[in-house]
Design a protein around this nucleic acid. Structure first.
Length: 510
RNA sequence: CGGACUGUAGCGCAGCCCGGUAGCGCACUACUUUGGGGUAGUAGAGGCCGUGGGUUCAAAUCCCGCCAGUCCGACCA
């Protein structure tokens, strides 16, 4: 463990992020270009995310299945928009065998004899494989809906990668559903967007904006892409989840038809929706501070850590005995506790260490406490020295106190993130002002943050593209009704001056 | 794929200009010390100096090639 402090968020946000992910033992770069190793501590958080999401999927009627890693090239070609969207970032399997390299002792080479008849694409997403399968599953309206989810890895050959935010291989879940009517499919699309938003807000404590993507930003092959967008602490937007209404595009491409009640053939209606290990990045960037991670209690692998403070073995024994009682009381409440009895480390070192790892509550127990029947309680959501960051509580009833405190921390970090987002969301009516705001983020290092900008847009791709070229800002989404008070007011486009029906959300994005 | 930079101990780096026995900090091992906010000391272990070639009595250091990585652009969950 290095003694050196993390870089400060205000000085170099991306360096702070990279360093934190590595130092907190979430993940590290692997020997494979663009691919990360998710370390046990990081993976524990992902598992908690998975469990919560999976329960929510099950509760909404979905079941899990598994489809192949490989997609025959001809499958990917079938849906034109889809093929175009993903073609540039696919890993392709062309051979199935290696052999000894005659030119290099001990070396291997691709056996040219083993060339595949048809190339296999490592899935960048599974619509193609899954819809080719659904064709066999659907004959009648009685076979619908199909409500399937898959937990899997996918590969997208990105030019530049960053731990969790964009890696060549990433873990995710992808739901793929098939329905008899468009209305039902649209309802499913919206339902899953709600599931994602609920998850982000109640588990991750990350407030999100629900919206619809513009045509430019839409998923390749979808009719409509719904999304949740979150603000990171540098003011940039992170797309945290997407839910797509696929219309009949894939059903037509893969010839998936069913007989309706009137015995007429119809193409089925589809949806797909996914969230990925990118959520880990969102979690880090939304809450953590210059001392390390700040994890929401609902996702923290360790919710409470107990640090003993002692000089002699006798003291440690007495403390350990008391800690065992506390641990038991917390365990009954389903709270995970770690007793950090590591020897040869000072309490100060341990404090810093657990702060770096984002453990929500830290208890410190020493001689003084034992004598007075008290225990020191520190909450990670407040910074060192901040009012209320550290208090002394009676040991009696500490489990109840901690239980309440964890709930309070969960609520507090959500509120902090929400307050931050609201403070950095602005309505803008002139393009000059817009450019100034978007340019500010270019010169990070002065502690300034980017903004979410609600502005009028004329609805054309041309305008959207121009604005992106000139400012790098993109339309994150057209917010759903009810997200912002005046979002549905009419106005004129900041760029073209043409009429606009509502404000859309612009931001610089990850 | 274009531009810049970097490859030396597990990690972070110095040494290179000016060639001559491989260094520092952290981490690691043992012992001691310390312990209510990153203790301190003693001893120790750990290196094909990215890789291939060249120049030289001698190369981490100079020259050429290659490979890898990071950052900045174009692409994206």
């Amino acid at each position: 463990m290095s003694k050196n402090a993390l870089p400060k968020r205000s000085e170099n946000y991306s360096e702070w992020y990279n360093d934190l992910v590595k130092r907190a033992d979430l993940a590290e770069n692997s020997a494979v270009r663009g691919c990360m190793v998710i370390k046990p501590y990081g993976y524990s958080i992902w598992e908690k995310m998975q469990r919560a999401l999976d329960d929510m999927f099950k509760a909404t009627g979905h079941t899990n299945a598994y489809f192949p890693l490989f997609v025959p090239k001809s499958f990917l070609e079938k849906e034109e928009g889809h093929a175009e969207g993903f073609a540039k970032e696919c890993a392709v399997v062309t051979h199935y065998r290696l052999k000894a390299n005659p030119d290099k002792k001990g070396g291997l080479m691709v056996d040219p004899e083993s060339k595949l008849e048809e190339e296999l694409i490592v899935r960048p997403t599974s619509e193609a494989v899954i819809w080719s399968t659904y064709k066999n599953w659907v004959q009648s309206y009685r076979d619908l809906p199909i409500l399937v989810n898959q937990w899997a890895n996918v590969v997208r050959w990105e030019m530049r990668t960053r731990l969790f935010l964009r890696t060549t291989e990433f873990l995710w879940q992808e739901g793929h559903t098939a329905h008899a009517t468009a209305d039902e499919a649209i309802a499913e699309t919206k339902q899953m967007l709600d599931v994602y938003a609920t998850f982000a807000e109640t588990y991750m404590a990350v407030p999100v904006i629900r919206g619809v993507k513009t045509a430019n930003e839409r998923f390749a092959g979808a009719e409509d892409t719904y999304c949740i967008e979150a603000m990171m602490q540098d003011g940039k937007a992170l797309q945290a989840g997407t839910s797509h209404f696929l219309g009949q595009n894939f059903a037509k491409a893969f010839d998936v038809q069913f007989s309706n009640r009137e015995n007429q053939l119809e193409h089925v209606w589809g949806t797909s929706w996914g969230v990925s290990t990118r959520l880990m990045g969102a979690l880090v960037m939304a809450h953590s501070d210059d001392n390390g991670l700040v994890l929401p209690p609902k996702l923290a692998p360790i919710q409470v850590v107990v640090v003993p403070i002692y000089k002699t073995d006798e003291q440690l024994a007495a403390i350990s005995e008391k800690v065992a009682e506390i641990q038991k009381a917390l365990a009954i409440k389903g709270i995970s506790v770690k007793f950090d009895a590591r020897e040869g480390m000072t309490p100060g070192f341990k404090f810093a260490d657990w702060e770096l790892r984002g453990v929500p509550v830290r208890l410190a127990l020493g001689e003084r406490d034992l004598a007075g029947g008290t225990i020191e309680v520190s909450r990670r959501d407040k910074e060192r020295g901040e009012e209320g960051a550290k208090t002394v509580q009676p040991i009696e009833g500490i489990a109840e106190y901690v239980e309440t405190l964890l709930a309070d921390i969960q609520a507090n970090i959500y509120q902090k993130a929400l307050t931050f987002r609201e403070a950095n969301t602005v309505r803008v009516d002139s393009y000059d002002e817009f450019k100034t705001i978007m340019a500010r983020d270019e010169s990070r290092g002065d502690g300034s943050v980017g903004k979410f900008v609600l502005a009028h847009w004329d609805g054309t791709s041309e305008t959207e593209t121009k604005i992106k070229e000139e400012t790098k800002a993109t339309i994150r989404c057209i917010p759903l009704v009810g997200q912002f008070d005046s979002a549905t007011e009419e106005g004129t486009c900041i760029y073209s001056g043409k009429p606009s029906k509502q404000r859309v959300l612009f931001a610089l994005a990850y």
